[in-house]
Design a protein around this nucleic acid. Structure first.
Lengths: 248, 248
DNA sequence: GCCGATGGTTCATTAGATGGACCACTGTTG
DNA sequence: CAACAGTGGTCCATCTAATGAACCATCGGC
């Protein structure tokens, strides 16, 4: 139907990203394509500066910065980021805690922006991190406003535990989503990283439904239950403000 | 010699990234490939979730989050980022200003990490920004420790002015690099954005030479000349610390 | 020495990418 | 309103160029 070689090339590229640093044979096995084909693809991608081989370490392959530079320029989240950055900045100043902006990619949330806290004790999520929806405040908020179909599909996949406190029971998650909807924001105490509590709210486009979410997070010692409501309403208000400014 | 269709596909992808949101005809012109071919590539890339078409706006193409998620997972800079994040966090707390971590891609510096200030007045560079070397503290620091060949090649290209204060004379840049080397850090007052001053230092791998650089930046009203030395030595010390922890 | 890995290359076969020509549609202009 | 210059999109005969089985070279271990 369409450009088989391109498809395999991209599949190889994604495999490199996932397994890096990785060698030829392992890649060929992972993608289930003959070595010779993978080899040609690798050389091509190298010429294009999208991947590079380690100088030592038997010349294993990794993604090159150029690939990152190309794809990060913009990305669909960029318009969201543009309208979000102002309100998020205000929210950061108001709460003094770390703020995350995340958008969905397949079954994960991807962190596309972060504003830092001045505190020495910081909640840290690297930009570009892919985190499970059921284990994060952003993901839960997003799920809470997603369609039933999507939630069902999501919950059919095995729910891994990021920490001992992660919700792994689909029933429990469903109930929590209901709570989030009635409350307007999500609370995730230690479900993604032990000792980190986060409070999130969904960004909802009138036309497209939920398109991402935001959260404020910090050490559980600072984000105590008595602050949940204050931070929750602040996050929810900021999310509403961004939602209204969305292009859709 | 190798996989022509893949090459054109990647060229199309890069063109989309650069011109997004962009339509079929414009793309075909940009990459100088028949519309029909571009069309097939676009459909393929869409199936792979690497690009997406706007719902409104005549269905123009943009890079999808998935592409960003794939390439940001790791990227060669990731190991740098991993070892850098701790020291950078300390530097951010020490100075209270925005910290950037950038690595070279072709003739630009690409911002791969940022720790920002809690100040209302913020120096902001979006992640993934590609900035000219001669116009940025990070770039100048990187150049200062690059090979003569690379510097010569770089200076042969036209030096664009990002602001009225950008150095555009190759001689002047060369002299500045000398100053940076003897001082140990770079200073860039308003050369990238008017009213923003940045101080940078290079990350140097013993085996590979310069692999990136870091900088602290803020409004020129805060980063005044009397702070140059204090911040400069701090940045340089942090850079040295990271350099020693580098894998190479 | 053999064995099981690895990375890398060759080349006959034919799958499949190519691109010129074409259609349908929209908005502009004289 | 007819002609026109754009746009996105599709067909299909031609022949390029992607494929992959078979092959070789090298490495490390036992």
């Amino acid at each position: 139907m369409s450009t088989r070689s391109v498809t395999t090339a991209i599949r190889v590229l994604e495999a490199v990203a996932e397994l890096q640093p990785v060698g030829l044979s392992e890649l060929a096995r992972a993608v289930d394509v003959p070595k010779a084909t993978v080899q040609r693809v690798l050389v091509t991608l190298e010429e294009l500066q999208w991947i590079e081989r380690a100088k030592r370490d038997g010349g294993k392959w990794s993604i090159a910065v150029h690939a990152y530079a190309v794809t990060s320029r913009g990305s669909s989240g960029s318009r969201i980021r543009d309208v979000a950055i102002g309100p998020l900045s205000a929210l950061q100043l108001e709460t003094g805690e770390t703020i995350h902006l995340a958008v969905p990619d397949e079954l994960r949330m991807v962190v596309i922006e972060r504003l830092d806290t001045p505190h020495v004790l910081r909640a840290f999520l690297a930009l570009g991190s892919r985190i499970p929806m059921h284990a994060s405040a952003t993901g839960l908020a997003f799920l809470a406003y997603s369609s039933d179909e999507f939630v069902s599909v999501y919950l059919q996949h095995p729910l891994g535990a990021s920490t001992p406190d992660t919700m792994v029971d689909p029933q429990e998650v469903r109930a929590e989503l209901q709570v989030i909807r009635s409350r307007g924001y999500s609370i995730n105490p230690g479900g993604l990283s032990s000792g980190i509590t986060a409070i999130g709210a969904a960004l909802i486009s009138r036309e497209l439904g939920p398109v991402g979410s935001i959260s404020v997070s910090g050490p559980s010692s600072r984000i105590t239950p008595d602050k949940f409501e204050e931070y929750g309403t602040a996050v929810a208000a900021t999310a509403r403000q961004i939602s209204m400014a969305l292009p859709g």
